[in-house]
Every structure is written in C-alpha cells, then in structure tokens.
Nucleic acid binder design. Structure first.
Length: 506
RNA sequence: CGGGACGUGGCUCAGUCUGGUAGAGCACAGCGUUCGGGACGCUGGGGUCGCAAGUUCAAAUCUUGCCGUCCCGACCA
C-alpha cells in the first residue's frame, strides 16, 4: 500500500518552492552537492541532458560558421586588469591561484610552497585570454570575422550557491567573435541571441522574452547586453542566455587591431555570448510538477523506458524477448535529430520502479506484460499526464506514431509554460498597484506572488535602484518587440515611451 | 563580513537540559510471501557521536578552542 501522500515530491511547489526545487534535483538523480563548497557533481542522468543541450546548440552554432576551440583555464592577472569595467564586475568573484607546489609542513600536512610571481585567476569568463589570441590572429580585415566558441568550465566565487542555478563552478559555452564592421558585430550579437531563443523554445520548451538589458544589468565591459528571460513557476525570472555587443572595448584592451581595405588601422568589433548548466535549473523550475521533473522529449536524457512485467519465472523469457525487440525497433527511429534513447528497466515490478522514472521525468513509460504481449500491444504512460492515465496501444501503431506522441508532449509542455507566463504577466500603470503586486501577503513566509510586470520606466538608473531597494525587483529586459507607447514612469511619474519587464529574478 | 541555528551509520533525525559506554525510521544484504499504482515479515551488515584539549572513576552529554555546514542579511551575469 502507498504510504506517501499524493505527490512524489514533498513539499509541493505551493508549500515551499525553494525546498521543492532541492528535492526534485535529488529525486531526479541528476546531480548532488559535492564536498567542495558551492560545487556540484553532475550524475549520468543530468549529464546526458547537458550532452544533448550541447550537441544541439553546437550544431546550431556551426551552421552559422562558428568553430570550436579551447583556451586555458588560467588567466594571467595582468590580462584581466586590462578592461576597467570588466575588472570591477568580476574581481569579487574570482578564484585566484597564488602557489604552485605542495610541501610537507613541519607540523604535518601539506602546505603551498612555491609562490607565483604573478597570480593566475581561474577564468570567470574568457574575453581577456581569448582577446589576447585574437590580437595575434588578426592583422588584416581579410582575417575577419573570427567566429570562435568554446565549451568549458568556469569558476565564479559566489556568496550563495544553488545547484544548477548558481554554482561556484559550472559548465557553459562561450562564443567570442571579432569583426571588421560594427554593424556585422551587432548582427552577430542578435543572431546568437535568436539561436538561444529558438533553442530554448523549440528544444527546452521554455518560452522566453528577448530584449536588451539596462545599463546596470549589463555585462561588465559590454556596450549592449541582449538576453532571453524565462518565467519560472514561482513567477520569478531566470536569465537563460545572454549575448553581448562589446564594441571596441575589449579589442582596445587586448589590442585587436587590423588594417582595413582603405589602409587605415582599426580596432575590431567583438561580441561574446553564452549559456550554461543553469539551463537545466530553468528546465526543472519551468516544467517540474509535484511528482518531479518533466523532461522535454527533444533533449531528454532518454525518451522512453520499457518496464517488463514478469509475474512468473516461466514468463520471463517471453516478456524479455518482446521487450528487447521493441527496444531495438524504437532505437531505429529518430527524433529531434538523433536516434531515440530507450532504457530497459527489468528490476522487480512494483510501484517504486514506475515512480522512480516519474521523478526522473522520462517522457514515456511503457509497461510490457503477458497481457500486452497476448494482444501485441504496449501499455503507455506519458509524463505530461497524470500517473494514472495509461493507454494500451498496438505495438506497430506505437512505433509508427512515436514521434507524433513525443511531439505532442513537447508542444504541450511549451504551451503550458507559455499559458503560465501569459497568465502571470500584467500591465501595471500605477505605482501603488506595482508595489502591491510585488509584496507578498505573508511577509514571514512569502507565498508565490508577483510575476512579470510590464510597466513604464523613464530610463533613469535612480528609479531602477529605488525599485530594487524597495522590492528586490529589477528590470529584466527592454523587450525587442516593444511597441512605442506614451506613459509615465512607474517610479517617478516622468514621461516614458515604452514598457519594460519588471520581475524578481534568480 | 554581521545575526541565528546545527554537526550522531549512506540519508533524516532522537538521545545532550539531569554524564553511566549508542538508538529509530528510511536505505542496503539474505530468505520467504507478494507483485499491471510507492508491498510485508524475519534475519543481518554498517557509527573512533565534526576535530582537539580539559573536568571526571566514567563524556555523544559538561567546559574551552578550532573546523565545517545551513538559514537570514550583505553580495551577485
């Protein structure tokens, strides 16, 4: 008999959203905390997801002419110091290597011995070290553009960490490009943001808003920062990807100069853009329910688990053969640009086995027992439906329709997330209403509240700061698809010509 | 770095106030009965009680110091 409540995850999202998140991560078997402060161990089920994200994005990048390369994890301090705003933005988060050797200390134990003449920082991002290479690679406009991406780990020594969302070390991709022409660099910045948006929506099934950051939220050293922002189920915003137009700031700092067609010497225009393992956190918070994570079929670690039902040993061989045959047939099929990944779980039958896969978020669970084999059918449960809803489908029909079923799940997930965002995005014109919107009723144990507020902003940083201090609400972005509209700043009442997205953020 | 709390089998925790030589639930292993919605019974393995010093006949328990973790704040691509 079941002894737990109705949900596989406790507490539920409504009861305690942050704790729900931690429990979902644990139950999904994707990652766990490591003994190292703020770092995580990504387990196979989580890493497979990252691999799929990586493969798909990598293809998209390459289709635009980007090539992969790799640069060192260590950055000489002197490089890092070159761009003033960049230093200011990242200095506090840098891990620094000052020694290079260990020795036995007289008191026992190992101590660092050889002190480095110049400290090395562990990359928090690679603009400066890649810029140094670019400066050597470029001498003529004919050398441009350079379109480089690297898949790497980076370290940012954050005060408070949360698995997948903000860890001291994380995996990401960072693209770096250099152009002879300003407009071309801006186009590239936009192009990459569009790729992120398409990937988020088509693969992760996460609807995103594209827009530009305000000055205060801009990447340190950038001229413009574009971003995609997604709404999580606690109605907070998650920055899911960013693309920066760096102007000539970093090319001046790294001395990326070239001779133009009309024989003048000029600085290159550079861009950088990245997404990280944070996307996995976004996936969990966007799609998860009170039974655990729900993986979108296109990037799921696996799409299908087959669970043989063996009640008597005498049936075992027949059931296993049928199951393995089905697995083989399914693996022939392609979905989302790659072969279907199919798991067979032949552990003892019982509810626990099924629930484990629910918590891992696999899109389809298929039970195969003697009854099904007798009618040449399979018993299918979809993760986007309640655990009870299982349907018997003829084996051949199931195989033929598998991509339609998975597509349907993929679309359902996106539409559900989009409906949620729409429901919790409101236009607010009055200051009082704005403050009310972002203030929980129960201050001691805040309930899920707020959302995206589309409101007017005069463009002054003072107003931004004021709202941040009062409510912890920030401008997530100035949407690209904004319509011009006259209004009054939600904070000071001065005239404004467009609305921006206000929200609490991760 | 300020405020608070906590370190006891793999996990969650009880035991600490009132010192007497370590427990529960879950997980794990074996056997049996079960089994198409989270099974049950019996048996078993596993802990220098964060570290160090002190008090004591005796310390998980009292004292001091250290280390670490979590929460709130500050900070934050």
């Amino acid at each position: 008999m079941a002894k737990k409540g109705k949900t596989a995850i406790e507490p539920t999202r409504d009861e305690d959203y942050p704790e729900w998140y931690q429990q979902v991560v644990k139950a999904s078997d994707m990652a766990e905390k490591s003994p190292v402060r703020g770092c995580m161990v990504i387990k196979p089920w989580g890493y497979a997801l990252w691999e799929n994200i990586r493969h798909n994005l990598d293809d998209m990048f390459k289709s635009t002419g980007v090539k992969n390369a790799y640069f060192p994890i260590f950055i000489p301090l002197a490089f890092f110091e070159k761009e003033a705003e960049h230093v200011e933005g990242f200095a506090k988060e840098c891990a620094v290597v000052t020694h290079h050797r260990l020795e036995q200390s007289p008191e026992g134990g190992l101590v660092p011995a050889g002190k480095l003449t110049e400290p090395l920082i562990i990359r928090p991002t690679s603009e400066t070290i890649i810029g140094d290479s670019f400066s050597k690679w470029v001498s003529s406009y004919r050398d441009l553009p350079i379109l480089i991406n690297q898949w790497a780990n980076i370290v940012r020594w954050e005060m408070r960490t949360r698995i997948f969302l903000r860890t001291s070390e994380f995996l990401w991709q960072e693209g770096h490009t250099a152009h002879a022409d300003k407009e071309e660099a801006v186009r590239r910045t936009r192009m990459m943001l569009n790729i992120y948006a398409r990937f988020a929506e088509d693969y992760l099934a996460i609807p995103v808003m594209k827009g530009e950051k305000t000055f205060s939220e801009r990447f340190p050293g950038a001229v413009n920062t574009y971003c995609i922002e997604a709404m999580m189920q606690d109605r907070k915003a998650l920055q899911a990807g960013t693309s920066h137009f760096l102007g000539q700031n970093f090319s001046r700092a790294s001395d990326i100069r070239f001779q133009s067609a009309d024989e003048t010497e000029e600085f290159a225009w550079t861009t950088s853009w990245g997404v990280s393992t944070r996307l996995i956190g976004g996936l969990i918070m966007c799609h998860g329910d009170d039974d655990g994570i729900i993986l979108p079929p296109k990037i799921a670690s696996s799409q299908i688990v087959l669970m043989p039902i063996v009640r008597k040993q005498s049936q075992r061989q027949e059931v296993m053969e049928y199951t393995e045959n089905l697995a083989k047939a399914l693996k022939e099929k392609r979905y989302g640009g790659r072969r279907l990944s199919v798991e067979i779980d032949d552990r003892e039958i019982g509810g626990a086995r099924g629930w484990e896969w629910i918590k891992k978020g696999i899109p389809l669970r298929v039970e195969i027992g003697p009854r099904d084999i007798a009618q040449n059918s399979v018993f299918v449960a979809r993760r986007d439906q309640t655990p009870k809803e299982k349907t018997s489908i003829g084996r051949e029909r199931f195989i033929i329709q598998i991509d339609h079923i998975l597509d349907e799940i993929q679309h359902n997930m996106f539409n559900k997330a989009l409906a949620f965002r729409k429901k919790n995005t409101v236009s607010i014109n009055h200051r009082e209403e704005f403050y009310q919107f972002f203030t929980p009723k129960d201050q001691k144990k805040p309930e899920i509240h707020g959302g995206f507020a589309m409101s007017h902003w005069c463009g002054e940083e003072a107003c931004e700061t004021r709202i941040k201090d009062d409510l912890k609400v920030t401008i997530r972005c100035i949407p690209f698809d904004n319509e011009r509209e006259d209004g009054e700043c939600i904070c000071c009442g001065r005239p404004s010509r467009e609305r921006v997205v206000f929200a609490k953020a991760y």
